[in-house]
C-alpha cells in the first residue's frame, strides 16, 4: 500500500515557509504535541489549523482557525495548547481563534493526509474523487454526506465493500 502523499498544496507551502521563517521554532515544535481530539495522531499543525505562534514579553500568543464553525473540538484544542505550553514552562499563554484566513483542507500537510489514510480515513481530494483507504479503488459511493464529525462523510468502496470515513474537501 502506498502511504506516501507528496502533493504539496500552495496553501500548505506558504504555511510551511512562514513556520520556517519563525525566530522561535522551538515553540512551534512544542505545539507538534497537540492533536485533534477527534483524530488521534493528527497534530494541529498537520490539520492546518495552527496559523501562528509569537512571543511578546513573557507571553506566548497562539493563533488557530476553526475547521467548521460549530466544531466543538475547538475548546478542547485551546486547553490542550495551553497545557502543552505550561508543561514547557511557559506561564502566560493566550490562544486566539481567528476566522481569517478561513481554514480549508488545502492547508493540511502531506504528512497529515498520509496519517489520515493510515487510520483508514480517506484524505480530502479536490473534486471529491474519493479513493478507498484500504484497497485504493476509486470506485466508491457516498453512504451519507455527514459522518461522525462535521469534517467527515461516510463512504463505501464498491470493490472491497469496506465502509470508511472521508475527510471532506472544504
Amino acid at each position: 500500500m502506498n502511504d506516501v502523499i507528496s502533493i504539496v498544496t500552495p496553501e500548505f507551502a506558504s504555511r510551511k515557509a512562514y513556520r520556517n521563517a519563525s525566530v522561535i521554532p522551538a515553540l512551534w515544535d512544542i505545539l507538534d504535541n497537540v492533536f485533534d481530539p477527534e483524530l488521534p495522531g493528527l497534530t494541529i499543525w498537520d490539520l492546518g489549523i495552527l496559523q501562528d505562534v509569537s512571543e511578546k514579553n513573557d507571553a506566548v500568543l497562539v493563533t488557530v482557525t476553526p475547521t467548521y464553525s460549530g466544531c466543538p473540538a475547538v475548546d478542547t484544542i485551546i486547553t490542550d495548547i495551553e497545557t502543552e505550553l505550561f508543561k514547557f514552562g511557559h506561564k502566560k499563554v493566550e490562544v486566539k481563534v481567528t476566522l481569517s484566513p478561513a481554514w480549508t483542507t488545502d492547508m493540511m500537510s502531506p504528512t497529515g493526509k498520509a496519517h489520515l489514510k493510515s487510520i483508514q480515513i480517506a484524505p480530502p481530494e479536490k473534486n471529491d474523487r474519493v479513493c478507498c483507504p484500504v484497497c485504493e479503488s476509486e470506485n466508491t459511493k457516498v453512504l451519507s454526506q455527514f459522518g461522525s464529525t462535521s469534517c467527515k462523510s461516510l463512504y463505501q468502496c464498491n470493490d472491497c465493500f469496506e465502509a470508511f470515513d472521508y475527510f471532506k474537501h472544504f
Binding site: S69, G70, L99, S144, F146, S148, L154
Partner: peptide, 20 residues
C-alpha cells in the same frame, strides 16, 4: 440513522454560525 446524523450536523453548523 444517517439522516439523524446529517440533521444534527447541520444544526451544529448553525449553532457555530450563531455563535460567530
Amino acid at each position: 440513522l444517517e439522516e439523524d446524523i446529517a440533521l444534527s450536523n447541520i444544526a451544529l453548523d448553525y449553532i457555530g454560525r450563531a455563535r460567530m
